[in-house]
Amino acid sequence: MNAIEARNITKFFHEPTTFQVLKQISFTVEKGHFVSLVGKSGCGKSTLLYVLSTMDTDYEGELLFENHLITGKNQDELSKFRNEHLGFVFQFHFLLPEFTVLENVMLPALKLKRFSHKEIEHRAIEKLQLVGMDNFAFNTASKLSGGQQQRVAIARALINDPSIIMGDEPTGNLDKTNSFIVLDILKKLAADNKQTIITVTHDQEFAAQTDHIIEMEDGLIIRQ
């Protein structure tokens, strides 16, 4: 089954001058695959990821999720969709600094309200165990190191058991050791939980470990 399908995605930037970033991009990603988007800076790979993430709605073409059309839904529907089906890991860890590690992981689940507060807390601890951060559950997020924050961010991305996890250079800001830890976690998720993973990366070693590599240049896919 297709986890995600892009049909003729075209996007323009208008500032400072009009410029076509994405040119009629079409591809599909199979469920449970670990895909990396690679290419030089400015080739449009991050832009494509944010279109796939549903946060950027300013594009032409169609985006399908498990064969359902996503394009054209309003902001609130997209928020609900992201909450339930998508998990994000960003380059700069982006935790809420005043909250504890546990609260950070719980926040998307508290919004979704699929489980009771107690269950959500229990599940959050499980996810933290998965990334080896359960000992830090009650620390304030701003007190952690970069690698630790990134692992918490992965736990947060997993809390609602999303079918797709997206990462924008999830290891871009980490040293070798931490990069391998993060890569291992993501690989295990794809293999064991059949969760689809799409990451943008510069890191050739990282890309080489993934199931699929989609290479882009000048707004086009040149190899997949």
Binding site: Q75, S79, R82, N83, L95, L96, K111, R156
Partner: peptide, 8 residues
């Protein structure tokens, strides 16, 4: 972050 993770 809140918006990315599904807050309306």
């Amino acid at each position: 972050i809140l918006k990315a993770t599904g807050y309306e």
